[in-house]
Design a protein around this nucleic acid. Structure first.
Lengths: 110, 110
DNA sequence: ATTCTATATTGCAATATTACGATGAATGAA
DNA sequence: TTCATTCATCGTAATATTGCAATATAGAAT
């Protein structure tokens, strides 16, 4: 069906899945890494940096913008994208909490 | 196209995307959380725990097994699934490294 | 006004994902 | 053996994702 049954899961589980989805494509990972590397805005060099067509990059940027990880401000002709540090921290906290579940080392049977 | 152009990205970026994909569905998040909560094997209670059909759960388990996050051993009639703690730690390290990129707080322009 | 440059949007084709009914395989119990 | 239980696999339908050509939009430069 391709239709996730969101209502069957907790809000937490759906949130984690949504964040993970944003990272679930190497192009989006590359975009975020590049944004961190230059530690500033990018105004258009992404298409050359990553080897995909301009509409494809634009689409990935849109998805990252939708979940709030990046924000774009219009800068003359071009658009200036950068990480939303607050949202990034918030997201990092949620994911870290999920990843750190294994602290208790009780009875494992396998 | 729906076909990710893997060859355009670094191994690191592809790895991160693959791991994220495993977390990109609430059912798989729920499965992993349940596995941690009972801190032991599960032998079948997942279908009731999560409200999806048995083939669907089986498929999600397969994906988690494919990337190595869980392992299953046959235990009589049922199958015993649990987290692969080594792989989990390895994965956690990769993701944490990605999430911790923002440590430097240099010139932001937005 | 026209042209150039940068980005967004639309439309579409190819592939992937999700979900489940039906069925199969394997084990244990009667 | 026969039956019930547990899980995997197959087949299929519905939806989502990815990628790009074509086009639209908007500001800058001439």
């Amino acid at each position: 069906m391709g239709l996730t049954k969101t209502e069957k899961f907790t809000e937490d589980q759906n949130t984690i899945a949504l964040i993970a989805k944003a990272f679930a494509h190497p192009a989006r990972v590359a975009i975020l890494q590049h944004l961190f590397k230059i530690n500033s805005c990018i105004c258009g060099d992404l298409v050359e940096e990553i080897g995909l067509a301009q509409p494809t990059i634009s689409q990935h940027l849109k998805e990252l913008k939708n979940i709030g990880l990046i924000k774009g401000t219009i800068e003359g002709t071009s658009v200036c994208y950068c990480i939303d540090k607050d949202k990034w921290a918030e997201m990092k906290s949620i994911i870290s909490q999920f990843l750190d579940q294994d602290l208790n080392d009780g009875n494992t049977c396998c």
